[in-house]
Design a protein around this nucleic acid. Structure first.
Lengths: 144, 144
DNA sequence: TATTGTTATACTCTATAACTATA
DNA sequence: TATAGTTATAGAGTATAACAATA
């Protein structure tokens, strides 16, 4: 709790965060487009590159309805970036698994995401450490 | 210029920013939905609440094609939140102007945007000042 | 009965191209 | 001819509801 409602400083920080969000989002969409992917497709592929997931879990991670994932994975599968595999433990479940090409695309996508790497270059290591800890506290992550 | 390419600290900050972006975006969409608006409609209305704009300028601000704005403003106009007014200086131009109800909706929308106000409450004033200056430097804004 | 994934449907956002009315 | 806004079109994402297969 704190008394930070609508004071000018808080409003200024909120606006700056809005700017960061807009810039990050735009760069993410552009990076996805350079790989002929939509933002949603890139997010799903990036998720699966970390760990194959049942369709329903993808929806939970992306906070959307499971029915949407069907179409997105359909398009990734048509591109040869993802495969659907049956779950031997529960035949209702289908696991979405990235192919080798999918993993490669996900890696290149990640590497090409210049944002926040390039602008972060403006900051010294001390400043980046400071920023990291402030963001962590803001997000409610325990700072050891 | 700096040597911050893929060092663990930079990657950690990039990931934290990604988390901030995801949370902010989601909260924005939810706030818009509470006012029965889509995200795009809320962004246009919020923009016009600051200053009425010609259709084309809205597209420039949102970085999308002008043809998209036609539909978005159509829907806002159908809801009585925005009006199209002729520009007396150039009869090709239409100014999108928020109605009183539109201004009121924009204000309530802005006030209901809890994000970054609530989590920012976790930070002291000194920390918020620090965060502000770090974000400004990151974004290439001159810090006086 | 409950759950997983899909299909069907409708709406919105998006880019592209062609059109109109002005300039 | 150039520009502002619109229309037409097609593709993609989204939520909702209903469905088949499996649990």
């Amino acid at each position: 709790m704190a008394t930070s409602r609508t004071d000018p400083l808080t409003l200024e920080v909120v606006e700056l965060i809005g700017t960061v969000v807009a810039r990050y989002y735009e760069e993410y969409e552009q990076a996805a487009a350079r790989h002929a992917l939509t933002g949603a497709q890139a997010r799903v592929l990036g998720l699966l590159a970390l760990d194959p997931l049942p369709m329903r879990h993808i929806a939970q991670k992306l906070r959307c309805e499971p029915s949407n994932i069907t179409g997105i994975v359909d398009r990734l599968e048509a591109r040869g970036l993802v495969e659907r595999r049956p779950d031997p433990d529960d035949r209702r479940v289908k696991l979405a698994v990235p192919t080798d090409e999918g993993l490669d695309t996900a890696r290149r996508l990640r590497d090409s995401l210049g944002f926040a790497r390039e602008p972060l270059g403006e900051l010294t290591e001390t400043e980046r450490t400071l920023l990291r800890d402030l963001l962590k506290r803001m997000l409610g992550v325990d700072v050891a």
